[in-house]
Design a protein around this nucleic acid. Structure first.
Lengths: 221, 221
DNA sequence: CACTGATGTCAACAGTGATGCGAAAATTCA
DNA sequence: TGAATTTTCGCATCACTGTTGACATCAGTG
């Protein structure tokens, strides 16, 4: 007795809503079904696989991340914003973000993101035959980092707190004879924030892109 | 009727052996138990949690990666080797590698790795107050990238092959008007290998570390 | 109106991590 | 030595997962 007819998009939408809540129960078929008032097996009428569902939702995440990049930025700033937005979006929808970094999504979101980044790298002035090489480095690195941050956001609050304070705990316990460098830097280690690390990482990647700019043509900036 | 007494290390060892096989069944309690000729519930006698087990095995992975770094290398090459070895080890034990990147292991393996990298960065000549900042960037980036590569190695062979050939497929299908940059670079994109990307990433990270070397002291190299 | 294809419901399956209970071995103590 | 205690495993069980197949019901077509 089908109460109503659902489209795959309805399930993607529901999965997004759930993934954003980051409840401890996870993103299971049962929860998705409940969100739509439907049996959990109805999900597999529209997606052959758990993997297929995740890829569809993941591709939507890419769209979300990309559409929040201001359009009128210089190419470097576009790349920076895209990277930050991917991390932000993955963290905002941690159940999906933590699981699809290694998959080729092959949807419109991923296509648009690749097009966007290729274009920005070309515009910066990277030689034509190196554009793809650096795009893949940037994309893979940002995706994997975003995925790790999402997995972090997924941890129960108490465990995350324990992990974050682990370094301060080691400060008290680690013998300075055995770990002199840790002893010398443990406070600095504990103080570094994840957003600082992300900024730092993006800067490093952009710097290496800058270092291969075509010297011959001086038209860019 | 305990046939014999098992230590936590025995389970870690068994988990390593299974994780190295990359069979499609995964690293479940049942498989670990079978490996030791023991019921799967025996695992939780020694580890409170699946998480605790993964952390223990993950810490062992760190030890494995670190102990294969040649001792007599220059600091830059030590960092390069450590990064490569972490990726290699995570890929070699993909079940564990793909899951513990976001956790603080807090074991001797992680401690040794942090000590090792802090020391190398200091030896390169990074100012004292910036050593921790760059260590965390290097470590988090390499861990997350290694984790993604491990997840990739875990995919069934047919899916991985399909993913790798996705770009070539897009070459045929993607409309050049809508995705001009993809059309212009799709062949280059498909040709870039993961190991190239890794080299490229490590180079980028090391370059940014080099850029903050203390200019005042010229004693290094 | 009947027919067909799509879609949801329900029950079932094997598999997971985890828990509580009882038995047996290993260890400790007298 | 022998008794008491602690450790550790086997077994049964739980709730939960993704997935499948049989059945029922709806929408749209001729």
């Amino acid at each position: 007795m089908p109460r109503r007819s659902l489209t795959p998009d309805d399930f993607v939408e529901a999965a997004l809503a759930i993934a954003a809540r980051a409840e401890p129960d996870g993103l299971s078929g049962r929860v998705i079904g409940d969100e739509l008032g439907v049996d959990r097996s109805a999900v597999w009428r529209h997606f052959s696989d758990r993997d297929a569902l995740l890829r569809a939702v993941g591709d939507r995440l890419m769209q979300l991340a990309l559409q929040q990049v201001p359009a009128n930025l210089a190419p470097r700033e576009r790349l920076r914003a895209a990277g930050r937005n991917v991390v932000e979006t993955f963290v905002a929808y941690p159940y999906v973000g933590s699981q699809i970094a290694s998959r080729t999504l092959q949807g419109p979101g991923e296509m648009a993101m690749v097009e966007f980044t290729l274009d920005a790298i070309r515009e910066i002035g990277v030689p034509h035959d190196l554009v793809a090489k650096y795009q893949r480095m940037l994309a893979d690195t940002m995706l994997s980092y975003a995925s790790m941050r999402a997995a972090l956001a997924l941890l129960p609050a108490d465990i995350r707190a324990a992990d974050e304070q682990a370094w301060m705990g080691l400060y008290a316990t680690a013998p300075a004879e055995q770990y002199p460098a840790i002893a010398a830097h443990v406070f600095d280690l504990a103080v570094v924030t994840n957003d600082e690390i992300l900024d730092n990482l993006i800067n490093a990647l952009l710097a290496v892109v800058d270092s291969v700019i075509e010297k011959s043509t001086g038209r860019e900036e």
